[in-house]
Nucleic acid binder design. Structure first.
Length: 301
DNA sequence: CTTGGGACCTGGCTGC
DNA sequence: TGCAGCCAGGTCCCAA
């Protein structure tokens, strides 16, 4: 599933082959791929145009063309861009031939990917939230954006209008690293929690780019290699396994129709001190009793 | 305005 | 072995 680190990797690895080259031939066997333009429009506009620059914004890949137009690709769930594959394959949705005799293929098993040809990038990506790796993305920016939403923090991190580029895997990893339960309300995190979350979002995304992305499902890099970021996952897609911190069992819940993995011990829903929790639950006596017995923890249900 | 839920899409998996 | 039915999740769209 291409999220920010995967799209960034694709951009970095594709750029040396594409930037400065022009399109010589474009085939789009799957017209459903296109949003707001026809196959003929795209072929006519692209052929002969040079790619001036390749850019990523959130999970969007942006090709700046020499005529000022912009080709934008979103890979969604199962899309990939393959450089010079031996065969185009049965899932090829678009094939781009370049002036250096290389070609790249937009391959997408589930056909959820999208492609736009526009005059103005903002007509497609204007509503995206800030780039989490930009200098301007400070803890205060994150705090301000989260404070407007009374929804689970997991849902807020997945909302591209709040922050761009984070998907299901990295949201789970960042919340685990910050020890924040995925169902905590976005507008009720403390400043300290937001600082920790902000720090971990950036750390985890940077590390994942360093590992060239996570190949959990169908993600492959343009030249066919896999990424290795998933080997560093602590909770994502690890339901039922042991938590690497506390040894407890990693659980899976569904938040906003998304499989969500977390450690209930490391990411408690209620973070108030134990004494306050017990007061709220009317459990003074039980706490005293458990302490007098030398118990260091109390299970609240 | 915000929030939640369904649609899109299809290969792969589960269970009968 | 075959097949129906469910699941995965990024984004858009609609209803409350």
């Amino acid at each position: 599933m291409p999220e920010l680190p995967e799209v960034e990797t694709i951009k970095n690895e594709l750029a040396p082959w594409i930037v400065g080259q022009s399109f010589t031939k474009v085939a789009i066997p799957d017209a459903k791929l296109l949003s707001g333009c026809s196959v003929r429009d795209v072929r006519r506009a692209l052929v002969g145009q040079k790619v001036e620059r390749l850019e990523r914004r959130g999970k969007y890949l942006i090709f700046h063309l020499s005529n000022g137009q912009v080709l934008i690709i979103h890979l969604r769930m199962t899309g990939s861009l393959l450089l010079d594959p031996e065969e185009v394959g049965r899932y090829a949705r678009a094939v781009f031939h370049l002036s250096n005799w290389h070609r790249f293929v937009f391959s997408d098993r589930r056909r959820l990917g999208k492609m736009w040809l526009v005059e103005d990038v903002d007509s497609v990506v204007c509503k995206l939230g800030p780039e989490p790796l930009d200098r301007g993305f400070t803890p205060n920016v994150l705090r301000q954006r989260l404070s407007r939403h009374h929804i689970p923090i997991k849902a807020a991190l997945l909302d591209q209008h709040i922050v761009a580029g984070i998907g299901n895997m990295y949201a789970d990893e960042a919340l685990f690293a910050a020890r924040i339960h995925p169902l905590r309300k976005a507008d009720q995190l403390s400043l300290e929690e937001i600082r920790t979350l902000h720090n971990n979002i950036r750390r985890i995304l940077r590390a994942a780019i360093g590992s060239k992305g996570a190949s959990v499902d169908s993600y492959v890099r343009p030249e066919g290699e896999l990424g290795t970021a998933h080997f560093d996952f602590k909770v994502a897609h690890r339901g039922g396994e042991r938590c690497p911190i506390c040894g407890g069992t990693i659980e899976r819940v569904v938040v906003q129709n998304r499989g969500t993995y977390f450690c209930p011990r490391c990411q408690p829903l209620d973070r108030r001190p134990l004494t306050q929790k017990c007061a709220a639950a009317g459990l003074h006596e039980r706490l005293k009793a458990s302490r007098s017995l030398g118990s260091s923890s109390l299970i609240l249900t």
